[in-house]
Design a protein around this nucleic acid. Structure first.
Lengths: 241, 241
DNA sequence: CGTCGATTTTACCAGACGGTCAAGAACAGG
DNA sequence: CCTGTTCTTGACCGTCTGGTAAAATCGACG
């Protein structure tokens, strides 16, 4: 942790050229005014650049203010763009938000997905904690966006939680249960273990002001301190004695 | 945990008769329209009852929608009261919110405050986890209100975090360090331990939808399962081996 | 039972906000 | 350099929202 360099570019942003758009209902109902950006399947350079600028600005604003607290004007300002121009690229506020969540979800699941049934339990869990903590450190805005959506009752992400997210947790819970049956881990509920890792790591992004306030000046090394603490507690607590 | 009955009344609500009011600047600047409720120091029965109904409704709405997402109309509806009538008791939206936070803070710190330097470390930490988890179960709205305020950068609670909250954590961190020096606990950073307990317990209130989505039908006993899991992991991880 | 303050309501307002429109500016392809 | 398309903008609109004014109603107490 302490030794890996900061980075803050590209999560799932570099996927296909035609992604991350609020084009949910783009090519449908004929009568609706279609001449929005990207009616043709090919996107121009300007379209790609501006869509990206908007997404980044929206992440900044939504993660700080929440969905209702954010205004299109704020996002447009942050994207250095007029409001009507922004609305030329996205049909509305909710679509921008939805686009952000869409591309966030798989990024969010990635660290858990990497957990390898064939690996050594101690090693796999420690690495999972590290990866999650790195995400909290390097992508706090994404963490807060996600947290905000869940705390509001997940009006948009609700189905994804019961689908892909639950499926992944079920899969990895089975892996952990396998390790337990082999006697390589102490008997614990694997789902609550996963919750605990989510909670403790994301805490350092979502509650950053509180963490800083409590730690005061000594807060500089909070992420490496947290890594040390969490790895030791979880491993000592999880391994059979 | 599993055996203590549900309850959902009174946290710090029953303090003095003249509390929990947005009366920050009540008896000041003479020229401002004063005839709001409670200009005299004595509150009538109706004033107490209505202020309470408003606070409860506001907690419901603010905790679900966030500060900016909540509207005075929603709060008034929830309090079964007209908007102007509500504004007869509180000078504005922010004052209601502020009043909620004011009375929440000391409730929130209480469980940690109870941790006793003279007690047995294993017992004290286990009980602290239990108390926090009970609060997450019985007062999820308060938990979400607090979380929302912190996530927005704690614009109102900021000073309280650096003052009373930090002081309390410092005090209890010293207690834990004492236990460590006595060899009764393994060497760990006590502040990150406290963060971890906060994070894991509050997770069950703040991220309830996610927890439910992942656990599905088996989610009924989530609080007692969580208690079992957290107590074991933290204690096994914290005690010297 | 009348009076005066406490309480409640109806009507209203100014600004913010999400979104639209039509016209102008920039640009790519021929 | 012309032209059709893409991009950008200033002006505008209906609704929502926080908050106010003032009149009407209630209720305790002499």
């Amino acid at each position: 942790m302490a030794d890996c360099p900061r980075r803050r570019q590209r999560l799932a942003q570099d996927r296909s050229p035609d992604d991350a758009q609020g084009d949910a209902r783009l090519a449908e109902g004929g009568s609706r005014r279609a001449p929005r950006a990207a009616r043709t399947s090919k996107r121009t350079r300007i379209q790609r650049e501006n869509a990206e600028r908007i997404m980044d600005a929206a992440l900044e604003v939504f993660s700080r203010e929440g969905f209702r607290g954010a205004t299109i004007d704020q996002i447009a300002d942050a994207a250095e763009m007029s409001k009507p121009n922004l609305l030329y690229y996205f049909p509305g506020k909710e679509e921008i938000y939805r686009a952000l969540l869409d591309r966030l979800l798989e990024t969010w699941l990635a660290p858990l997905r990497e957990m390898d049934a064939g690996g050594e339990p101690r090693h796999e869990i420690r690495d999972y904690i590290r990866r999650k903590l790195e995400m909290a450190r390097d992508y706090p805005r994404e963490s807060r966006l996600f947290a905000g959506e869940i705390m509001r009752g997940a009006p948009l992400l609700g189905e994804a939680l019961k689908g892909p997210l639950k499926d992944l947790v079920d899969e990895k819970a089975a892996v952990i249960e396998g390790w337990i049956r082999q006697g390589r881990l102490a008997r614990h509920d694997p789902r609550h273990l996963i919750f605990a890792i989510w909670a403790t790591t994301q805490h350092y992004a979502d509650f950053d002001v509180q963490v800083r306030a409590v730690l005061g000046d000594e807060g500089e090394g909070r992420f490496s301190d947290a890594a040390r603490f969490l790895e030791r507690v979880f491993l000592d607590g999880l391994l059979p004695r």
